[in-house]
Design a protein around this nucleic acid. Structure first.
Length: 303
DNA sequence: AAGACGAAAGTGGTTGA
DNA sequence: TCAACAACTTTCGTCTT
């Protein structure tokens, strides 16, 4: 079962694990939910995917397309032994049983193989997106559930695994846009979206609309912005949410606009173009949003 | 010359008859 | 199933620093 942890203090689900201090901390109010948690992660640290590749001691198997490299045993249908002599009737029953179980295990291997392929695909996608382990596990779990409910039938395995990853990202509050996943998965955004909606509906995943807040830390680090800007952006977002300026708008657009305002206010200005690029929206959208925000929130911007 | 601005037309997805 | 619709994009000419 998935564990959705809620902060007992403020009800937020923005929970992070601080392994250096072995604490489970609420990101919104700072409440320490649990102490002395166990770190199941590797003992080494990696700061980018390059290092991770060098330090990881395990990896994908040489080939996962065929689990046994095509060496699986086949029992012939003829009632003859290896010398061509016919098998005595008293041994025939045993032979039938052998055939039956051989067939059964091969079928089970086929679904297992399918699952193994999907999971390695998930691993490949999430490592090229630099996603944390928890997201990968959530995605794997979603895919397993989908496979169990026969939701893959008639759909491409790649499509469903990409959708599972997208859902996992949202569930873990580290959202990636459909475009970002589409880029590494080589599947159109439309297909991922369609599969995602289908899987989410069938598995009854309860997913809240993505909050702009979840994007801020990633955008900030990609733009090499200070913690001041990050804090300021979150302030703006909080006010904007209070005044209901965020509903009905794309969360990335809101995030980009408030980030833009914060950079100007903090004197660490980035161009609309730069922010638009990392946020995956256009300059026009940033302009529209930030005009709205500055007007409604009475923020003066000196350019 | 780069960046910001905003109008206008186009796109893809949702909604409601 | 189709048209209306809102959000967002694309494109482009103009203004500002």
């Amino acid at each position: 079962m998935e564990e959705i942890i809620e902060c007992p203090e403020c009800g937020s689900t923005h929970i992070s694990r601080d392994y250096s201090r072995a604490e489970l901390v609420c990101n919104d109010c700072g409440f320490v939910i649990d102490e002395d948690i166990i770190d199941h992660g590797p003992e080494w640290r990696a700061f980018d995917s390059d290092q991770r590749e060098k330090r990881a001691r395990t990896g994908a198997p040489m080939t996962y397309t065929i689990h046994d490299k095509g060496l699986s045993t086949v029992i012939g249908w003829k009632n003859r032994d290896a010398y061509g002599k016919s098998i005595p009737t008293r041994n025939r029953a045993q032979l039938y049983r052998l055939r039956k179980w051989q067939a059964r295990t091969r079928i089970s291997n086929a679904t297992e193989r399918n699952l193994a392929f999907a999971l390695s695909n998930l691993d490949r996608l999430s490592s090229s997106l630099g996603l944390p382990r928890t997201v990968r596990e959530t995605a794997a779990m979603i895919y397993r559930k989908a496979a169990l409910k026969n939701l893959i039938r008639g759909r491409s395995m790649e499509g469903v695994s990409a959708a599972a990853l997208y859902a996992a990202c949202r569930q873990c509050h580290v959202p990636r846009t459909l475009d970002e996943i589409s880029n590494v998965a080589h599947i159109s955004r439309k297909d991922i979206g369609r599969n995602y909606r289908y899987v989410a509906r069938e598995l009854e995943l309860k997913l809240m609309p993505t909050s702009p807040r979840d994007y801020i830390s990633r955008f900030c680090s990609e733009l090499k912005l200070s913690a001041d800007v990050q804090a300021k952006t979150l302030d703006i977002l909080r006010e904007a949410t209070n005044k209901e300026l965020t509903s009905g708008r794309g969360p990335t657009g809101i995030a980009a606009a408030s980030l833009y305002i914060a950079t100007v206010l903090c004197g660490e200005r980035r161009t609309q173009r730069e922010i638009a690029d990392v946020a995956g929206v256009t300059e026009v959208t940033i302009r529209n949003r930030y005009k709205e925000l500055t007007k409604k929130l009475d923020i003066d911007i000196i350019l």
